[in-house]
Amino acid sequence: MRGFWRNFCRNRGAVVGLVILLLVIATAIAAPWLYPGSPWDMAGMPFAPPGEMGMMLGTDSLGRDVAAGIAHGARVSLLVGAVSTVVALVIGIGLGAIAGYLGGLADDLVMRFTEFFQTIPSFVLAILLVAIFTPTIGSIVFAIAVVSWPPVARVVRAEFLSLRSREFVQASEVLGKSRISIVFGDILPNALSPIVVLSSLMVASAILLESALSFLGLGDPNMMSWGFLIGSGRSVIRMAWWMSVFPGIAIFLTVLSLNLVGEGLSDALNPRLARNRGGKA
């Protein structure tokens, strides 16, 4: 564990990313205390530029505080990112494990099914699913999970294929262990590193997807989110740039920090690869 930290900290960018990510999470947690009351309520004069009327980041066309919107939106963005990633991981690991461990016909069937999902543009599919199931936070999470599990399944399958023929797995077979305990006890723990790295990047793309959906007006109408803020500011961007720019920066920083953390995790979990890449010692 200590070695893991040392390797992680060797990548400066990853540490910066982690700090930003922790700030975003802190903001999300502290939102009800920082900005009590609903972010949908009018807080001041419409179109107040940043810094005026006590509004740090200005107000929107209905006089709502943009800063309050961003703080409350962080909760939705992070929640949707995390939950949809967990759901996608469950689907992806399950199917990938079946395909990689059993091989043969099961592998063929699962991988063709996976490819079927990969051939449909994921954003279009997500829009379609949300439109069919009516936009609620549940349907958004479901739609994002459904479009983002195929890469997980492919990674897990590849890891399982190579680990399955390793001697320690064969030794477990010879000991007579059940399939379930071989898959979860022997193979999965050794396949975790790429899954961890991939999932940090998936959280980032889930946040982007959620923002894109709410930008198009397909967000949960009861939840304040970053995509909605940008979407509502888009028509008045020349008059009130702050309405779109600040939520945009929030998305940018969060996604960037997740990518940096993902890269740091990848370096820390595969220290040999990181060193070969010529990283500074």
Binding site: R166, E167, F168, A171, L175, G176, D186, N190
Partner: peptide
Amino acid sequence: RKRIQMVFQDPYASLNPR
């Protein structure tokens, strides 16, 4: 399984590292 057992070739790959 109890009565037939096996020892493997590669000492680095035949034990679960975790």
